[in-house]
Design a protein around this nucleic acid. Structure first.
Lengths: 188, 188
DNA sequence: CGTATTATTGACCACTTTCAAAGTGAGTGG
DNA sequence: CCACTCACTTTGAAAGTGGTCAATAATACG
C-alpha cells in the first residue's frame, strides 16, 4: 500500500487467517477509523469491505511529510492509535474469557455504542442495531462458529432480549439488560 | 497515575477482570515496554509485577511537554504504540482461533523471540526459555484454565518437543518444531 | 422467478473446564 | 537441620460448552 486512509462511510474488516482457513477478525474499520501505518508499506492483515466503503486516501509520502511538519496531526494520530490499542485489549477479554452468549451481547453493545457515538444519544431502553456483518463475519470476530452465532441470536430472541427483523436488523428491548448479558461492568 | 514509565528489567502484566473473577492478561510488559498514556491519568487495566521490576519513570507533565518539544520522541512513541497494537491484534488470533496446544506453543515462541530480541540470536534448534509466569498467569494470558496449561506442558514433554527443568525452565529441542505446533505461518 | 448465498436447526461429538485429590518445592521457625 | 506451611503444580474423572457435520429454510440478487 502506497497510501494511508480514513474510513468515511461503510464498514471494513481487518483479519488474520491460519493456513487451514481459521480466520480471526482483529478489528472493525468503522467511519473515522484509520488504515495504514506511517513508514510501512505493508498492512500485515487482510482488509475486506463488509459493505460498500468510502475511504479518504492520502499518498504515503505527503502524509508522512505532513506528520513531520504538523505536530498536532501526529499527536492526533497517536491518540487515535492509543484508542485502538485499548479497544483491541478490551476485545481480548471478550475473546479469551467470555462465553458465547456474552460474546454476542458484547458485540451488539459495541455496535450500538459505535453507532451512537456518531449521534448525540446514549443507548438506553429500546435500541435499533443494523448488523453490518454476516453470521460468519461475526463468528470470525468473536472466535465462534457461524452456527453458534446463529443459535445465540435465536436464544436471545427466545429470551425476549432482542427481536430480529429479517436477518440483519436487531431490536434491543432493554439496552441495560443486554449490557447485563454481556457482563460489562462499569469500566466501559 | 501521575507518571509514565518504561520497563528496564523484569516482567509485569496488564490485565482486565470480570466481576466474577475471570481474568484476561491483555499484555505483557517486558523490558523496553512503555506504560501510561499521555493526557490520561488512568490506566484502564490492572498492572501487576510478575517478577521484581525496575521501571524508569517520568512525571507526566514534563513528559508531555517533552512530546511537544521533541517531535522525534513523539514519532518514536507512535511507532512503539503501533507495534503494540499489532502485537495485540496478532494475539487475538491466538485467543480466538488457536487450540490449547497451539496456544501454549505460541506463548513459548513469543517468549523465546522476545528474549532473543534482546540478544543478537535468532531462535533455532535448541532454545532455553525462562518462564516468568505461573501456570495461572499463562492461562490468563491464553484464555485457558491453569489445569489445561499444565496438561499441555506435560503433553509437549511426552511428545519430546520440550523438557522441563523444575517448573519454570523450558528446553525446546527443536524451535522449528515448536513453531509448527504453534501453527505460525511465515508472516511473523 | 430461479439460483446462489446466507441463515437456522438438529444430532452427535470433542475439547476444554470443573471439581477433586495428591504431589512438589521454597521459605520459615523450632 | 528438619518439620511445617503455603503456594504452585500435576493428574484424574466427570460434565458441559461450543464445534462438526448435515439437512432444511430464508433471503438476496441476477
Amino acid at each position: 500500500m502506497d497510501f494511508v486512509a480514513s474510513v468515511v462511510t461503510g464498514v471494513a474488516t481487518l483479519s488474520s487467517t491460519l493456513e487451514d482457513g481459521r480466520t480471526q477478525i482483529v478489528g472493525l474499520l468503522l467511519p473515522s477509523d484509520f488504515l495504514g501505518r506511517p513508514g510501512r508499506t505493508r498492512v500485515p492483515f487482510t482488509v475486506a469491505a463488509a459493505t460498500e466503503v468510502l475511504m479518504c486516501c492520502f499518498r504515503r509520502k505527503p502524509f508522512e511529510d505532513l506528520l513531520h511538519r504538523a505536530p498536532h496531526v501526529a499527536a492526533q494520530l497517536l491518540d487515535m492509535t492509543l484508542d485502538e490499542l485499548q479497544a483491541a485489549r478490551d476485545w481480548m477479554l471478550v475473546l479469551g474469557r467470555k462465553t458465547a452468549p456474552e460474546k454476542i451481547a458484547s458485540l451488539l453493545v459495541l455496535l450500538a455504542r459505535r453507532e451512537a457515538a456518531l449521534r448525540p444519544v446514549v443507548p438506553k431502553g429500546r435500541v435499533e442495531i443494523e448488523l453490518v456483518l454476516t453470521r460468519e463475519a461475526m463468528a470470525d470476530h468473536l472466535g465462534l462458529t457461524l452456527e453458534t452465532v446463529s443459535r445465540q441470536f435465536s436464544s436471545l430472541r427466545r429470551d425476549g432480549v432482542i427481536d430480529l427483523k429479517g436477518t440483519r436488523h436487531v431490536t434491543v428491548h432493554d439496552f441495560d439488560r443486554l449490557v447485563t448479558v454481556a457482563n460489562y461492568d462499569g469500566s466501559l
